[in-house]
């Protein structure tokens, strides 16, 4: 629940000057049903003195929007148009003993309706300079559009600077992530440095081993397998080389190694040692595969 002042509640429960004003000669419409609040301010202005004789409002909106509208009509009654134009949104908020930060836009809407009504009376075209983004800093009611504009205009690059320029982030600091996102977005647009293409790290090239003759190569394979055999034999298993055909090394697992759960792990372990010793890729295959087309590698 919002922390509304007693005055806001009072003006909401008992709004002053609500409803249409039949002989109004200055009407200001602002807001939209889409935004969730809209206000029609109706003034009766004495054409000679430009004195506001009466003021009414119709408002679609929350409690503080209705209270702000009510306060506005009370404030401007009896003022000349020029005096009324000097009424700031802060004055409307002060009249109500303050508004929650998220609700300050209700007082801004009141001031805009006033300007629109005066323009309507004087036959001018009124353009609003109203833009409102998502609320980023709730402590000081600063929205994303304002923060982005200030960052851009002043070339800001840190949250601290944004706080100095807009107050945003100067309170509870929970919006710092949001401020950083806006900073990053603007910085990215501002950055003119050529994009650096990320080079994939070069693959490590193993030092080329001297090329072995066929005989040396087979001897080397045999040495590796012989060095492993004692370990297999300890577990009541064994291995024998059946054939070496290019990169395919065909072996028979024997004894306990046959059908062992670890068969695949054993084979890939031996294969890794062979690759290491030979400096080239080889594939260890069961002898049963001999004569069949080699596995896709």
């Amino acid at each position: 629940m919002w922390d509304y002042s007693e005055k806001v509640r009072e003006h909401f429960y008992h709004p002053r000057n609500a409803g249409p004003l039949v002989d109004a000669n200055a009407v200001g419409d602002v807001g939209s049903i889409k935004c969730g609040d809209a206000l029609r301010l109706m003034l009766k202005v004495d054409p000679q003195s430009e004195l506001i004789v009466d003021a009414h409002f119709q408002t679609f909106g929350c409690g503080s929007a209705i209270a702000s509208s009510s306060a506005l009509t009370e404030i401007v009654k009896g003022k000349t148009l020029d005096e009324a134009l000097k009424v700031s949104n802060q004055e409307i908020a002060d009249y109500l003993d303050g508004l929650p930060p998220e609700k300050m836009h209700c007082s801004v809407m009141g001031r805009e309706a006033l300007h629109a009504a005066v323009a309507n009376f004087r036959g001018e075209v009124w353009n609003d300079d109203h833009s409102e983004g998502a609320m980023v800093c709730k402590c000081f009611a600063v929205d994303a559009v304002l923060i982005e504009k200030v960052i851009r205009d002043n070339k800001l690059s840190t949250v601290e600077q944004v706080t100095h320029y807009t107050k945003a982030g100067g309170g509870c600091s929970s919006c710092h992530e949001g401020v950083e996102e806006i900073l990053a977005k603007v910085a990215q647009e501002r950055c003119t440095a050529p994009a650096v293409a990320v080079q994939p790290p070069a693959a490590a090239v193993p030092p080329a081993k001297p090329r072995l003759t066929n005989f040396q190569r087979m001897r080397r394979i045999e040495e590796v397998v012989e060095s492993i055999r004692p370990m297999l034999q300890r577990d009541h298993g064994d291995i024998e080389i059946v054939e070496v055909d290019g990169k395919n090394v065909y072996v028979n697992l024997k004894g306990a190694c046959q059908g062992c759960m670890m068969e695949q792990a054993t084979l890939s372990g031996i294969q890794a040692q062979l690759i290491d010793a030979l400096g080239e890729f080889v594939q260890l295959l069961p002898a049963a595969m001999l004569g069949r087309p080699a596995l896709a590698s």
Binding site: V30, I33, A38, D128
Partner: peptide, 10 residues
């Protein structure tokens, strides 16, 4: 509703 009451900004 949006036609009968059409404020200056939306």
């Amino acid at each position: 509703a949006d036609g009968g009451f059409a404020p200056a900004y939306a």
